[in-house]
Design a protein around this nucleic acid. Structure first.
Ligand SMILES: [Zn+2]
Ligand SMILES: [Zn+2]
Ligand SMILES: [Zn+2]
Ligand SMILES: [Zn+2]
Lengths: 150, 150
DNA sequence: GTACGAGACGTTATATTGTATCCAACGGCT
DNA sequence: AGCCGTTGGATACAATATAACGTCTCGTAC
């Protein structure tokens, strides 16, 4: 089930972490692999279930610790409205992206839209607000489902 | 503890619901009052605690049902990144707003920024995505805390 | 007035998501 | 070997949210 694309993502994650002097350990790599192999965002306990397959029993903190690391390194993102996580498509440079979440098929698209970033930034600076983290999630119907649905 | 401003919010909520043919019952009104009286967003269980004061014991579903109603009517908003709720300042017309959340003092500012709405809309339509709900939350430091902090 | 039905609410139990804590194992360093 | 910071295992628990079911209330029809 490991496609070429997923493999490159993992390889790129390896180089990134080496370059940053942080350790992409086996557990962390495994969580990232599971997320990248999934077409949909996964909850922490879904990841936990996936990790348990064929191996010993693991507990929630194991997954949450790996996720914390991957989030810090920008290798995965958390979807607040779903309490779920997705692998990042372009973790090379730090970024704050936006997500289109289809509530019909569950597909998630990560955008990196400059116009959105600019308008958010200017709204914040007009209020004298200093942004640290941005949560932008649009829930709705993706193009495919809109066509099928009606 | 009920200021004039909070009173008018409740009165406006009353008229709105009457006009829409939905019932702003005592429980729902109480939850709205608690949220409007708070300077900060409140979690569902904080609201529950506030409702328990001086009255009989209540259970979580009571609060969550009231919140569901108030969310549907646009009288309150949910802050996904905080798992908390705030009263809306201008519930008269349906709107999708944005939130500036200070992680130092907890203050939350509700914006209704046209530029953000437009950029979100155009990004979505470029993907053929039909938005239903928008979650836009910027976490950072508010003007006041930025000044005090350094 | 009485019967009915839909919506609102009380109550119990449970599901889901996320942490605190403590200790053991590992890895690089001297 | 001995030290020390990081990682991970394990248990227990906290916080958030919902399922399920019965009861009550209120407006409407008869
Ligand atoms: Zn990304
Ligand atoms: Zn879809
Ligand atoms: Zn609002
Ligand atoms: Zn502040």
């Amino acid at each position: 089930m490991t496609s070429i694309a997923e493999k490159t993502v993992l390889d790129r994650a390896d180089s990134l972490c080496r370059a940053r002097g942080v350790r992409l350990t086996a557990q962390r790599r495994r969580v990232l692999a599971i997320l990248c192999a999934s077409a949909r965002p996964l909850g922490a306990y879904e990841i936990l279930d996936a990790m348990r397959e064929g191996s010993r029993a693991l507990a929630p903190p194991t997954v949450y610790r790996a996720l914390d690391f991957l989030l810090e390194q920008g290798l995965v993102h958390k979807l607040e409205s779903l309490h779920a996580f997705v692998g990042c498509n372009h973790p090379e440079h730090p970024h704050s992206s936006q997500f289109l979440i289809c509530n019909s098929c569950g597909e998630v698209t990560e955008l990196e839209d400059e116009a959105i970033a600019r308008s958010l930034g200017s709204a914040a600076s007009m209020s004298g607000f200093q942004p640290q983290r941005r949560v932008v999630e649009v829930i709705g119907t993706c193009a495919g489902c809109a066509q099928k649905g009606r």
